[in-house]
Write a protein that binds this DNA or RNA. Structure first.
Lengths: 185, 185
DNA sequence: TGTACATCAGTGAACGCGCGTTCACTGATGTAC
DNA sequence: TGTACATCAGTGAACGCGCGTTCACTGATGTAC
């Protein structure tokens, strides 16, 4: 079950997209990487766009679900923020390719992503706003603070992608948590 | 001198790239927007790639120069950091289209950008490292701290791009400066 | 066991299309005498 | 002033190419009797 043709297509497509950019990779390129011919891909995905959207949205909403679960840990807001940051770091360590794919393709999709309960950005924004309302952190522009926290994480992943950092997010988790806590202080 | 054909081509190309994504815009699209036919573009740029690279690198290194100048203000490290953050906010206000273009296309170019004196990321990294050496801020992983600061700014611009924030960077400059100072505290 | 048939992942050949780019040409503008 | 010529931004038509996708077909595998 771990290596169905469909899974292999998804993995190789993701690898090529990260390596060369989504638009530089053709259906023939993907098929080659999997060891198939291009028409065979259409037995598994209705179209190229379908394949890409499947890769993006499935992963993005899964990230949202994991984040929502972490946000539900007992304790005060700072414990919840720490749990959220750590789960993102863990997701990066678990599948860096997937994380990088989301990082690189985000701008092609974010316009179309609905701001629902599985949207990671929305989840963080709402938790910051709630913490401000509850008086757990100094009040201010919740969206701006949420953006700052997301920015710290995303840019660290970007630095890792471009080899400015020698280790992944998980190896810097303590420092990233500390920075995020300073932002909400 | 402000409206040569070449300048109009650059501006319309940038607008279309930001609006639809670089790969979704053809030379014919750009020519249409300018009111020309596609072959005319080749009187001004040797190729499509040349046009895009020109747009990106010229702007990116110009940002680097402005940042380097801001970093040279007299005073301690915190004054310099504030000056750098404010100049980026000002650049955003001055030409939001250009800023967004750099934001959206960065991943297509960052692999190829040389880490020289005009690279904005490099400038910030080096200033943070120097401040740590000098004991102006607590020592730690300079690259990580630099990434955090860059992340705060970049993500704020991203939130603005996707209309999560109603105002540009310049209108939030005070808050962004405050967050960045907290990061290096 | 052998035969007929259903299933289905994968293929080879072909399609129409839009792309980046080339090139001979046009037509307006400036210059020489 | 008028005529001949140079310059040069812009154009119409055409090119070869690689793209996403379709479709009739293959060939291996499983099932029925």
């Amino acid at each position: 079950m771990l290596d169905t043709p469909k899974d292999r297509i998804k993995r190789e497509a993701m690898r090529l997209f990260v390596e060369h950019g989504v638009d530089a990779v053709s259906m023939r390129d993907i098929a080659d990487a999997v060891g198939m011919k291009a028409p065979s891909l259409y037995a598994h995905f209705r179209s190229r766009e379908d394949l890409i959207a499947d890769l993006f949205y499935a992963s993005y909403t899964e990230y949202g679900r994991q984040l929502a679960r972490a946000a539900g840990v007992p304790g005060g807001f700072r414990q919840q923020l720490e749990a959220m940051v750590r789960v993102i770091c863990a997701l990066h360590a678990e599948d860096e390719l997937l994380f990088n794919f989301l990082l690189l393709t985000q701008h092609g999709f974010l316009r179309a992503v609905p701001p629902d309960d599985c949207n990671p950005v929305e989840i963080i924004c709402q938790h910051i706003a709630a913490a401000m309302e509850a008086g757990d952190i100094p009040s201010g522009n919740a969206t701006l603070i949420a953006g700052a926290i997301i920015g710290v994480i995303v840019q660290t992943a970007t630095f890792r992608l471009y080899r400015r950092l020698g280790q992944g997010l998980a190896d810097h988790a303590d420092e990233i948590v500390a920075i995020c806590l300073r932002i909400v202080s």
